[in-house]
């Protein structure tokens, strides 16, 4: 465990240096974080100018969904996306064969692949997201139990998005040139609104198959106290199962790499 923390620390240090090598990144990242915040917030304000509730969600609750969306997205951009994206594309580790070096390390491959690159300026996004969540909290009556449930389900959401990204990245071992992660990124944008607005099959798909509902809607529901114990349990079980499936698939993918010609 200590060793893993030390590995994460050196990865963070090295990534920070890489990023600081490009001066403009600082200002650009700050600008992008502000734009994300502004457009996200306007997207809600404009809707709630017209109605008081969106599919049963009032402004505060929808703001909580947006906050969770921004927070999970920020954590993704902080470490998961930069790390896993190194596998993808024609410059990526699988296509180039530099994945060999990852396999040669005396440490867990999945761990290395998931934490090796940090985009440190995404902390701006984290800060903005926390501001939005705080703003949502200010408009509801927040109980300690709700906060606890929120933190629990937020963890579940983060585990779920990690599992999803790992699954999409594992598929790269079968088709290294195809940008699977883009597909997920595209779909994940839909998580900025409560998943209930998507009708019929699309809604079910987004709750249980590509579970953006579990990633953002459910934690926000926990914050506003609008969730049943059964749903909480189901969500957490889903997160754990998704992680197990993803790890299994990733192992199969690396075994495939280890039996393929190159």
């Amino acid at each position: 465990m200590l060793r893993h923390l030390r590995i994460i620390r050196v990865f963070v240090a090295a990534s920070t240096q890489q990023e600081l090598a490009y001066h403009a990144n600082f200002a650009i990242s700050l600008l992008n974080a502000l734009l994300k915040l502004a457009t996200g917030w306007l997207g809600l304000v404009i809707v709630f100018e017209q109605v008081d509730a969106l599919n049963g969600w009032d402004y505060a609750a929808a703001l909580a969904v947006l906050g969770v969306y921004l927070l999970v997205g920020a954590l993704r951009d902080l470490v998961l996306a930069p790390s896993l994206n190194q596998l993808a594309g024609l410059e990526g580790d699988i296509w180039q064969g530099t994945f060999d070096f990852v396999l040669l390390r005396p440490a867990n491959t999945q761990f290395l692949v998931s934490v090796r690159q940090w985009q440190i300026f995404a902390v701006f996004d984290v800060v903005m997201a926390l501001l939005v969540i705080a703003a949502a909290c200010a408009q509801i009556t927040l109980t300690a139990a709700n906060l606890l449930a929120f933190l629990l389900l937020l963890t579940g959401g983060v585990i779920t998005i990690y599992a999803m990204m790992l699954i999409f990245s594992s598929l790269l071992f079968w088709s290294p040139g195809f940008l699977f992660t883009w597909v997920f990124d595209g779909i994940f944008q839909m998580a900025r609104y409560p998943v209930g607005i998507y009708p019929g099959a699309l809604g079910l798909l987004l709750t249980w198959v590509i579970p953006i509902g579990i990633i953002t809607t459910v934690p926000a529901q926990a914050l506003t106290g609008d969730i049943s114990a059964e749903m909480m349990l189901a969500t957490l079980i889903f997160a754990v199962v998704a992680l197990a499936v993803a790890s299994l698939l990733f192992r199969r993918a690396t075994n495939r790499y280890a039996s393929a010609s190159s």
Partner: peptide, 16 residues
């Protein structure tokens, strides 16, 4: 990727 945002707002406003 470009199609997704219009689709999101399609469903948002259809719901509204």
């Amino acid at each position: 990727g470009w199609m997704v945002p219009p689709l999101i707002y399609l469903f948002v406003w259809a719901t509204v």
